[in-house]
C-alpha cells in the first residue's frame, strides 16, 4: 500500500475541463513591418465543445475541442508603389549610349491602402488527442543521451538534481493548426482588392490601370511578394512570422510531448526550507506512479527510508 495516494475522478476531470472552457480566453495582438507592408493581428479566442475521457487502457482522451475565435482581426497596410507608364531604353547605334525614357506615373504620391477584416466567423480549429500518463525518474547523475532527441523541443532545461517527472505521452494528436480555409484567404484578398479598387477611379481609367498592373490579384501577389496562393501566405504569416498560433502548438504539442513533463517534483522533496543557517529538510520520494483507468486517475508515492 502506497504511503501517499491521490485519486481524481473522471467526473472531476470533466467538470474541470468544462470550467477551463468557460474561463480560458486567449487574447493577443501584434504588428510587424515587412518593408513594403505592415501586417498585424488582434485576436481573442476561447474553447468550446469537446469531451475528456479517462480510458481503461491508461490513457486520457480529449476529443473535438474547438478553439473558437471571438475576434480574429487581420490588419494589412500596404504602400502602393508607383504605377507608371512609359520608360524603357532605346538601343542606339554604337558609340551613342542607350537612351532611357522617363516614366510618367498614374498617381501623384504613393497611396496607402489598409484593411482589417475580422475572420473570426470563418476560422475554426479543432483539437483531439489521446495520451497516456506516465511517471519517469530523471537521474541527474546519468549522462544525457547523445544525440538528445528532446533537445530541440525541450521547454525547460534539464534540472541539475534528481526529479520525478509526470509526462503525458501522446499517442494520437490531431491539431488543425490554423489551416486557413479558402474562404478566409478569399476574404482577405477581396478586402485588399476592394481597398485597392477604391483608390482607382472608375470607368475606362480603371480598366487601363488594371491592365497596367496586371489585375488586382496579380498586383496583390506582386505587392506582397507572394509566389502562389494568398491563403498559404497568410498561414505562413500567422504561424511563422508572428508565431501567433504557436501557443496552440506550444500548449498541445509541447505540453503533450514526451520531452516536456507536465509536472515535476524534486527528489528529495524539500519539506522544510533552509532557515536560520539550518539545512533544509528533504524527504526522499520513491516509486512515484500515475495510472489512469476508466473512472479515475491515481497517483501514488512512497517515502524513502
Amino acid at each position: 500500500m502506497a504511503h501517499f495516494t491521490l485519486a481524481v475522478s473522471e467526473r472531476t476531470f470533466q467538470r474541470s475541463f468544462d470550467l477551463l472552457k468557460r474561463n480560458l480566453t486567449f487574447a493577443q495582438a501584434d504588428q510587424t513591418s515587412f518593408g513594403i507592408f505592415v501586417a498585424g493581428y488582434d485576436v481573442r479566442a476561447h474553447l468550446e465543445g469537446g469531451t475528456i475521457d479517462l480510458r481503461a487502457d491508461n490513457t486520457i482522451s480529449v476529443k473535438e475541442l474547438d478553439i473558437r475565435w471571438d475576434r480574429l482581426r487581420f490588419m494589412l497596410g500596404i504602400n502602393i508603389p508607383e504605377i507608371c507608364v512609359g520608360g524603357g531604353c532605346i538601343n542606339m547605334p554604337w558609340p551613342i549610349p542607350d537612351i532611357c525614357l522617363p516614366r510618367v506615373c498614374v498617381f501623384s504620391g504613393n497611396p496607402d491602402v489598409s484593411i482589417s477584416p475580422d475572420l473570426a466567423a470563418f476560422v475554426a480549429q479543432e483539437v483531439s488527442f489521446t495520451g497516456s500518463v506516465v511517471a519517469r525518474y530523471f537521474d541527474a547523475s546519468l549522462p544525457v543521451p547523445s544525440p538528445d532527441p528532446c533537445a530541440p523541443i525541450r521547454l525547460e532545461p534539464l534540472p541539475s538534481h534528481n526529479q520525478w517527472h509526470i509526462h503525458i505521452d501522446p499517442q494520437t494528436i490531431d491539431v488543425d493548426l490554423f489551416d486557413f480555409p479558402d474562404i478566409a484567404g478569399n476574404l482577405i484578398e477581396n478586402a485588399l482588392s476592394n481597398a485597392i479598387r477604391a483608390i482607382i477611379p472608375g470607368g475606362f481609367v480603371r480598366d487601363i490601370i488594371l491592365a497596367i498592373i496586371g489585375g488586382i490579384a496579380d498586383f496583390i501577389r506582386f505587392l506582397l511578394d507572394i509566389p502562389d496562393e494568398i491563403d498559404e501566405w497568410l498561414s505562413d504569416l500567422f504561424n511563422v512570422s508572428f508565431g501567433l498560433l504557436d501557443f496552440i502548438g506550444t500548449l498541445i504539442l509541447d505540453f503533450f510531448s514526451s520531452c516536456n513533463p507536465i509536472y515535476r517534483i524534486d527528489d528529495p522533496f524539500e519539506l522544510l526550507p533552509a532557515r536560520d543557517g539550518l539545512i533544509p529538510v528533504r524527504i526522499p520520494l520513491r516509486d512515484l506512479s500515475v495510472r489512469v483507468n476508466d473512472v479515475e486517475m491515481v497517483a501514488e508515492v512512497n517515502i524513502g527510508g
Binding site: V104, F107, S108, S114
Partner: peptide, 9 residues
C-alpha cells in the same frame, strides 16, 4: 503606416 491618398494624374 500613415494613410496617404492617391491623386490621379
Amino acid at each position: 503606416m500613415t494613410t496617404q491618398k492617391a491623386v490621379l494624374n
